[in-house]
Amino acid sequence: MKFHVLAILVSVVLLGGFVLPATISAAPSDNSDAAKIPSPLTKTQEEAFTNMALSDKSVRDSIGGKDFEGVGVGFFTENIDVENPIWQPVVHLNVKDTGSVAAFLDPSGQEVTRIEEQPLVKAAINAAFASNYYTGASTVNGLRMTTTAPTYAVDATTNMATLFLLNAVENNADVGKLCNPAFYATSYWAQVGLVWTTNARSVMWADNATQCITQSTGINYVAGHVYENKIYTSGGTWYIVAKDTNTGSTFTKTRTGITYVVFENSEFNNGIFFENHNTGTSWYTKYASPHEVSATAKYSSNNGSTWSNWQSGGKQDSDCGGPRVPSTIISGNVAGGGTATWDLQDMSALDC
């Protein structure tokens, strides 16, 4: 859904007591959150929410007169762990040369309650990576990553962009087209996790449709909190889910129209990686000692109903499109129920 700045004052489609779509059927206990996640929106519903957001002056002020593009509508709840969580629609917009804007609507979808902005960070573009990726033999349609947010010192004097992400790649994808919206259906790639920038730390998601530009989830970043990120498919739909397990605050985004609903095995971009966009090497000191991040992981072969330990996992480093080599940055391995740890001082030496 593309817009030009001159078309910003669109007519508003009033939703008049909009009721959230019925949730999907209940799942076993280790994925009980799935029973509370809203079903995918129709194109008409997404357009209505987007039009509603654009009718708000504060949203237009955030766009700042620039060209922009609607890249989807997700949902946020303050606490998914209650019996009947209250979901807010979240309208996501890419703003040319600026980054992204997320407009959070009230549960009825008729009023903007807050706005969050992300600086322009393109996940997986011109960066260095250290990846722990799935190499097991199962047909996988779900990956899960659990990590504790490290203490990070915001410092406006240091240009900064690093990410710690769960990634899932569509089967038979062309890796060179993963961030390209034109190949959304055949080379789909979803990402969700933590991002650290010059002035912020946040929980984000991205995919082909956003051109891998990071989008806000609305979940607060709190050092020491445990974040669970999941990407899985069910009923022909891809689900991207982020959750703060300490508070229950949760974001979800669904995508349809993707050719495959299983993931590419033994693919560097199908797992967990730390991503470095910086050119200097001192940025790692912004993370509290011992300057590292860690994660555990599971996979699912039954659409996220149950989760199992990875049978095996590869570990490789890659320097800005260069050759992939055995990792010297990651210790441990998420396979077998283990923990992988990324040494950020070593990671700072892997740059563009």
Results as ranks from 00 to 15, higher is better:
A340Q: 03
Y184M: 04
Y260F: 04
V261C: 06
P21G: 02
Q118C: 07
K177Y: 03
R144C: 02
G321N: 10
N229M: 13
G314I: 12
V5N: 01
I272P: 08
A26W: 04
P107F: 04
A335C: 13
W87P: 00
S327V: 03
S348A: 15
M160F: 15
D351M: 08
D174S: 06
S100A: 12
G280S: 15
A153C: 12
A35N: 03
Q345T: 14
L41A: 00
A123E: 08
V95W: 07
A242D: 10
T341Q: 03
S289G: 12
V112G: 07
L20C: 07
G332Y: 06
S131R: 04
I115N: 09
E69I: 02
A156D: 14
G257S: 07
L143V: 09
D97N: 08
V101Q: 00
S294T: 06
M145Q: 09
T279P: 09
L20E: 14
L54F: 06
D351E: 14
H4S: 11
P107R: 05
S294G: 06
V5G: 00
Y260K: 14
I63C: 04
W238Q: 12
T44A: 15
D33T: 06
T146H: 00
K177L: 10
E111A: 15
F3V: 13
V90A: 05
A190R: 03
V325T: 15
Q110M: 12
A209M: 02
N172H: 13
Q316V: 13
V293G: 00
G16H: 12
V95S: 00
D81A: 04
V95H: 09
T252L: 04
S289Q: 14
N199D: 15
A335G: 06
T146N: 01
A149I: 09
E275H: 07
E275P: 04
S249L: 01
S331R: 13
D244S: 10
S282N: 12
G336K: 11
S305R: 13
A185M: 01
T214C: 09
V95L: 09
D343A: 08
A190K: 00
P21N: 05
S32Q: 13
S305N: 14
D30Y: 13
V140E: 11
N51A: 02
T42L: 06
K315V: 05
K230Y: 08
L143W: 08
I272Q: 11
S58H: 04
L14D: 08
T139F: 07
L41S: 05
R255H: 06
V101D: 00
T247H: 11
S62D: 13
T44R: 02
